[in-house]
Design a protein around this nucleic acid. Structure first.
Lengths: 109, 109
DNA sequence: TTGTTTTATGTCAGATTAGACATAAGGCCA
DNA sequence: TGGCCTTATGTCTAATCTGACATAAAACAA
């Protein structure tokens, strides 16, 4: 991980970690973060595919553009609830969502 | 839905609805609630399968028995975040979680 | 370049959820 | 019946998250 991204993440409260660094977190927490990242990335991808701006999505959600930006960045201040609502708001089906989650690497037992 | 359950849900702040009644909620909100219910039910099922008590799960989560009870009831005061962490805490894999979500009925477009 | 649109970041007050605790209720066994 | 274990419900305060706003940065045209 490059150090500027690292600093940015740390500013937002993440225990910065990838691959080996994930050892800072418990395996379960690391997995949780991965799920969150995967779903947030799904929101961005589907939103862009549909040509919807963050502001437009925010309006559908009754939220704000800044929050959508933070959500897509999987900022610590964003709950899975908002991410899930966003997925549904961009038209993701349960099947789409399931697919995003299934791709997350299971952690070694 | 029987009326006692209905009353119980209403006490907890849910706009009570199933099938036709879901028309109270926007389709997206109804879908969100269904996802939440499905995942919460998954926690209960997997926890029971493994013979773990709510108190034991709470300890793994650094939470309390009462919160786990509310979570399994998909109480309004419980976020998807806690439900997701719980699934991982009872050993659900991303595949397991994906399966729970995929079963949710997509709402008619 | 300049202007326009979109996205990113920072902050805040108000709303919501958190874990904790007490206690009721249910289930089970002797 | 009486204990014992487990789950359910209600209620606190502290912690966290929310939408909103301002503004910076980036992306893209003209």
């Amino acid at each position: 991980m490059n150090s500027s991204k690292k600093r940015r993440l740390q500013r937002h409260g993440w225990a910065v970690a990838d691959a080996a660094e994930f050892l800072n977190l418990t395996p379960r927490e690391a997995q949780f973060v991965e799920v969150k990242l995967a779903l947030a990335a799904g929101v961005r991808r589907m939103r862009e595919q549909r040509g919807i701006t963050q502001a437009a999505l925010a309006e559908r959600l009754g939220s704000s553009q800044s929050r959508v930006a933070k959500m897509e960045a999987a900022d610590r201040s964003v709950t899975l609830d908002l991410i899930m609502r966003s997925l549904l708001a961009v038209g993701a089906t349960p099947g789409d969502i399931a697919k995003l989650i299934r791709r997350v690497e299971p952690h070694r037992a």
